[in-house]
Design a protein around this nucleic acid. Structure first.
Lengths: 245, 245
DNA sequence: TATGGTTGTCTATATCAATAGACATTTTGA
DNA sequence: TCAAAATGTCTATTGATATAGACAACCATA
């Protein structure tokens, strides 16, 4: 399991942050499932080869994130530890994909705009650059916990009113259905990773240094005509993607 | 493009490192392709709202990575900027997948061991826990630049000698072929992201704070019998995954 | 060849990060 | 009820980080 060995000194990233990352990882890998607690501060300090105060800074950061809760005299309890699985297939849908892994799924519309397609968007949607597209900024939550922040583009002519449909249905699938598109398929998905920007940190309730999994996806209708291009930014410590071939 | 606006103060990560990350991203997004140079230090300092010395620390780190090169009197030149695309399909192969994006592809065998399958490995390979498996530690390079570090497990009985076959062939596909398995398919792939460990930083020539894309993959033969389970760790700034459905 | 724009170097100061040690406070269980 | 084990708080010191200003060195070009 997570070999909690010595940390090596790295410039530019505070030791307590590196240690916080290591402990967070150990927690989510289930290393402390037996006790439901993090080892005592003195033990962690010894394992990582740092001062106890440094470990305390790390644990304070994790407490701030809501991952652990310290109780004087008892120890430091682990609060949460789930990682949602997100299957990527031809029938990928965010809400259904998460399925029974969470009780309540919501999609919130943060912003809507009609704009001219950039060269890249036009290419993905099979339009000419400058044609009208609707851009939706959405935030997706699983049990009130933010999971991803997405920017989606739709051909404006075909999907007029999709913003309102999304706002009421709280999912792309329902919005498409309301606009007369009962079914669609995932054509391509590109996955990369990056550090979270300040804006994404705020929306996804992340802390500095957090990682994003970025999925650029294109959906088509059953005839293969592009209906949506989206760039979704997932909190990397809350999800994993599964590709079944 | 990459809106190089003010950085917001984040505890635990040095400002110069955050700025280095932002500039690296801007470079790889092609923001400075016209000039082939990063803007002057004074301009960057103004854009980010920090002191010029802080920008200099960031640029020094990027120079250390080989991404930029400062020339006194002229400016700071951009050295490299490629991101390899790695398609994930039923026929995913590392070497062929990279294909024409690099001239020379190599797979180096770092370590080989015969061991008992853990519960997880056994599950993936369809074995009983404790059955013998062969574990290979490999490093994959594109044009001498390390791209990924992988740990792979194979059923020991069926693939005895795969270590030697990999060492000479420098690819899994060739090693399989040599052992009488001319073809195989990718069954499942799970993608996550995490910070690089010290060991991976060394092997992949990464700098502190670097991100990994982690792909856990299972390959089967044409009858659907598992032949390989692997955990590959990619330098996130050097690759992207593409899933075509 | 002179000038403006650029990177390189130096000094100084304030704040943050990390270590070190001591002791208080709380919980659990013998 | 006491002792052990755990987290909480305080003081002090050192080195890394960030800002500020000034000037040197170098390059391109008008």
């Amino acid at each position: 399991m997570a070999g909690l060995k010595q940390v090596q000194r790295q410039t530019g990233v505070a030791l307590w942050r590196q240690i916080a990352d290591r402990i967070r990882e150990a927690i989510s890998s289930g290393a402390y499932d037996e006790t439901g607690m993090v080892p005592p501060e003195t033990v962690l300090a010894l394992q990582f080869g740092v001062n106890r105060h440094t470990v305390r800074s790390a644990l304070a950061a994790l407490a701030q994130e809501g991952i652990v809760r310290a109780v004087q005299g008892r120890g430091t309890l682990i609060e949460r530890k789930e990682r949602l699985n997100f299957p990527i297939t031809r029938r990928t849908r965010f809400t259904a994909g998460i399925g029974d892994q969470a009780r309540e799924m919501r999609g919130l519309l943060l912003d809507e705009a009609k704009e001219e397609a950039s060269a890249e968007i036009a290419r993905w949607l099979g339009l000419k650059p400058g044609e009208q597209v609707i851009r939706l900024e959405t935030l997706r939550q699983a049990d009130k916990r933010p999971v991803s922040r997405a920017t989606s583009w739709f051909p404006a002519e075909r999907f007029a009113g999709i913003g309102e449909a999304y706002r009421t249905g709280e999912s792309i699938t329902k919005a498409f259905a309301e606009l007369g598109l009962p079914d669609y398929v995932r054509a391509t998905t590109e996955v990369t990773a990056a550090h979270a920007s300040a804006a994404d940190m705020a929306d996804l309730e992340l802390t500095p240094g957090a990682i994003l999994l970025i999925a650029k996806a294109m959906n088509t209708d059953l005839e293969g005509v592009p209906v949506q291009y989206s760039i979704s930014r997932f909190a990397a410590d809350r999800v994993q993607f599964t590709i079944e071939n």
